[in-house]
Design a protein around this nucleic acid. Structure first.
Lengths: 200, 200
DNA sequence: ACCTGAACACCGTTCAAGT
DNA sequence: ACCTGAACACCGTTCAAGT
């Protein structure tokens, strides 16, 4: 019998809890889902749960980062995409989709609300945002250098504006159950067009 | 002795409670402030408080709408301001200022989080947003008609983008305690410039 | 070493009783 | 008609006891 029965257990337990929590949050939202429910879903006791997470907020933070990471995955394609607008539109679509529907709409705003009182989450979100902004800025810079976008708007500032607008639009869309996603993406594309004036 | 001792009492009590709540929320945030604290601050009992508000969320909603109304007051000046960019910059400044500092930063995100689970608040926010967007769009349209802004971007879409970007930037600023307000306003002005290309 | 689940602390909300 | 404040319900977290 080894001293540490299973060195991978902690990681497995964390995943198990996170998956259960995701299901509960989807169903009832961050605030309304209870630890008891998460425990039932994960088939674990409250005592055990607190062995792997410091608090409910801690679980929320882990899920929040995950959710955004998923939404930002489309950024990877921005680097290989030479049509800047298509890349941005795809990023917007992924983001809208990640926070679409009643259940996930609340997630987007809850992430910010949670970050407002959890400095660790705020810092992590900021780090993610910086990476995203850096990628968008790099893509814009390439387009400008290739003469494919007008050069007057500093890439970093344009990137910041594009991400902030996406956030604001996603919040509105999510909370007001607006139109279909395709429409929102089209409007975002128009915004990017007017900001960047790409030549192709 | 009149049957209704004081017909203005309900309104007075509501104000009294809201003012106390504002103070408590400022101090400890929506989530952490307790009804008991608000009652103490308002010198009223919990039972009496629930006579004038249905729930804590109800109080939160009232304050949330107030906070945004204050931030949007600068919109009134957009109509009389013939320099569009100055008007937008002023609107941005008011918005950034309304949600500045540790205590009020959380307010901005809490408003959205609360709206995500309170349809009444969501509807009210949306109505406000429509009014704001209408005013900005009207200002843009006037500038375009006067040949003072380039006409390619539909006023309504440009207005929506400008408001969404302001929301996103304010969230970032509020949570990440960024730079000074002047700097944020300058960047917002640059964004508006690149979106609208006004000719004066 | 890991887990259980009863117990604790806290807080939003209600309601029987007062004036 | 309006208010009080004790009581209730609920839920995040802890901890003594188990294996």
């Amino acid at each position: 019998m080894p001293r540490h029965a299973d060195p991978a257990l902690p990681q497995r337990r964390r995943s198990q809890i996170l998956e259960a929590a995701r299901a509960c949050f989807r169903e009832r939202g961050f605030r309304d889902a209870t630890i008891e429910e998460i425990c039932a879903e994960a088939r674990i006791s409250p005592g055990a749960l607190y062995r792997y997470f410091d608090s409910k907020a801690d679980i929320v933070a882990a899920i929040a980062l995950d959710a955004r990471a998923e939404a930002e995955a489309a950024l990877d394609r921005l680097s290989s995409e030479d049509r800047l607008l298509d890349g941005l539109a795809e990023m917007a679509r992924a983001f809208f989709e990640a926070f679409d529907g009643d259940s996930d709409a609340a997630l987007l705003s809850d992430i910010w609300a949670e970050a407002a009182r959890d400095p660790v989450l705020a810092k992590a979100l900021r780090a993610r945002d910086r990476i995203a902004a850096g990628r968008v800025a790099a893509a814009i810079e390439r387009a400008q250098a290739a003469g494919a976008a007008y050069p007057a708007f500093a890439p970093a500032d344009a990137a910041e504006a594009l991400l902030a607008a996406l956030e604001g639009l996603a919040l509105r869309r999510a909370l007001w159950a607006e139109a279909d996603i395709g429409d929102a993406v089209r409007r975002y594309r128009a915004l990017a067009l007017h900001i960047l004036k790409p030549k192709r």
